[in-house]
């Protein structure tokens, strides 16, 4: 099967990439984004759950008509989920995708070069063998 090789084609290639400043920037940005997203949605969700469990009087307060705070906050959970997903995607498109595309293309080019050299070398060996034989 076309299984991924157990080791990188060239030892240390990925380690070198992992040391690359652009990759470090990408990783820092992603981690900061992930922490912000998790902290905001889990914090807000658990605040809402805690209010539902322990602040019943507050949740029962009418907001408008028959709609009380519990329903209002519940629907706001939906709104915040949509907003956070949109913000995450926008940030990823602007700040992460260009960096990762650049790194990926460079790695792809290096890979193609290596394969080209290997092909040329193989061809040369073949010709040498043929002329000798």
């Amino acid at each position: 099967m076309a299984e991924t090789p157990r080791r990188a084609a060239v030892p240390g290639e990925f380690t070198a990439l992992a040391q690359d400043d652009r990759f470090r920037l990408l990783r820092t940005r992603f981690r900061r984004l992930a922490c912000t997203l998790v902290a905001s949605f889990l914090g807000w969700y658990f605040l809402y759950i805690a209010l539902s469990a322990f602040a019943r009087d507050f949740m029962a307060r009418p907001a408008f008509g028959h709609i009380n705070m519990a329903l209002l906050l519940g629907v706001l959970q939906f709104v915040s989920t949509f907003l956070l997903a949109w913000r995450y995607t926008r940030y990823a498109r602007r700040m992460l995708d260009p960096l990762s595309a650049q790194l990926r293309d460079e790695a792809g080019r290096r890979q193609a070069e290596r394969e080209h050299i290997e092909r040329v070398m193989a061809e040369r060996r073949r010709i040498e063998n043929w002329t000798r034989g």
Partner: peptide, 17 residues
């Protein structure tokens, strides 16, 4: 395996390979 972890991070974040 440090080398493999680097490889996993690079692949996961950049989509290389």
């Amino acid at each position: 395996d440090q080398e493999r972890y680097d490889e996993l991070s690079v692949r996961a974040l950049t989509g290389t390979g």
